[in-house]
Design a protein around this nucleic acid. Sequence first.
DNA 1: CAGACGCATCAACATTTCTTGATGCAAAAT
DNA 2: ATTTTGCATCAAGAAATGTTGATGCGTCTG
Lengths: 109, 109
Amino acid sequence: MSTTTSADLARTARLFHALSDETRLRIVQMLQRGECCVCDLTGALGAAQSRLSFHLKTLREAGLVSDRRCGRWVYYSLVPGALDELSELALGLRPTEETWTSQGEGCCR
Amino acid sequence: MSTTTSADLARTARLFHALSDETRLRIVQMLQRGECCVCDLTGALGAAQSRLSFHLKTLREAGLVSDRRCGRWVYYSLVPGALDELSELALGLRPTEETWTSQGEGCCR
DNA sequence: CAGACGCATCAACATTTCTTGATGCAAAAT
DNA sequence: ATTTTGCATCAAGAAATGTTGATGCGTCTG
């Protein structure tokens, strides 16, 4: 029995929101292959630097991405397990067992 | 090798967007237990009818929910498998194997 | 030290998304 | 036949989100 608090919902919404943008999905795809600094991303995605910083911030605040400073570069990478958690959240929203056994009763329930 | 077209990205973003809102998450939670008509939802969620219709439309257009008219009621329900697809999409964004074996090289790669 | 570089952040604006109340329609109910 | 009910849809406004160019800060390079 999972009592879902409003805070849980907010976090879940936040997580899904982080992946609800094409630019951010592209960023994640880049990061799949390994760490990237912002300039790697501007090159590959052809997007302005400030734009990417903005989206990286969104991803970081959602907990999907982490950053590591190194000299004048900042390397971003995917947080291990974060996407597994997201996957679990999605599965947790699926219809319950009894839903599919107790349905189909003609019209109007 | 999965070539990800721009259309794919758009659909993925759309799917995640559908679950990026607390009201819609609540709706999905309600629907987990089985079909609901809009008036069930207004009652349970304490939200205006037009507001719920708006969010239900978003969920429907994302393919997460389907509707069935019956007399003057419209019953909404979760589309079987849709959340599994979403879960798979999340897993597909995880870091690749080699990412974790080829990393950790001190500073600046 | 003086520049160049990588990045975050900000302000201004554009765009999208959400909310609310009104209107309309089709299907009961009377 | 008229009214009521359940819902979609619309227009208008409010709020959130994304974009762009400018600015500033720390760090490397010469």
